[in-house]
Amino acid sequence: MSLVKIKTRINGKAIESEVEPRKLLVHFLREDLGLTGTHVGCDTSNCGACTVLINGRAVKSCTMLAVQADGNEITTIEGISRNGELHPLQKAFLEKHGLQCGYCTPGMLLTSLWLLKKNRNPSEEEIRKNLSGNLCRCTGYQSIVESIKYGAQLMKEKEEEQEMPVR
């Protein structure tokens, strides 16, 4: 099968690749780039384990071809911590037990990052509604909802901290 050239920016790094036109984005990320934090859970875009951010928006990478990502900026779970320090939302999931087996976790984190970008202070109902494309079989979601609420608070605190020296 002939290969197609694509240019993407993944976790801040410019990447040029050649891919089979039929290759799904999730397989490109996992197998060509070794970014195995993005998971495959269902093949029918129900479970959201494969969620990544494309140009800041949550997208299920199993419903998209790698060639469709050409020219776009992608953030995977590996790209949300900075200099080895966990993102506040990752810390919140650890502290509030927002995971058990951890398989849905990367998708949960990226979907909630997108939510928190749109809405810095979501209600429980808004959080649950926004998770309708992400399945978790272990937690019953309650600790995930709590993690996201707590993560929102940590993110605000961190922003305020960073704004302080400017004043």
Partner: peptide, 17 residues
């Protein structure tokens, strides 16, 4: 290790190459 799981650095079977 739960920390590796929130980092996307777990070691699931499909991650093996």
């Amino acid at each position: 290790d739960a920390t590796s799981l929130v980092r996307g650095k777990g070691h699931f079977v499909d991650d093996i190459r």
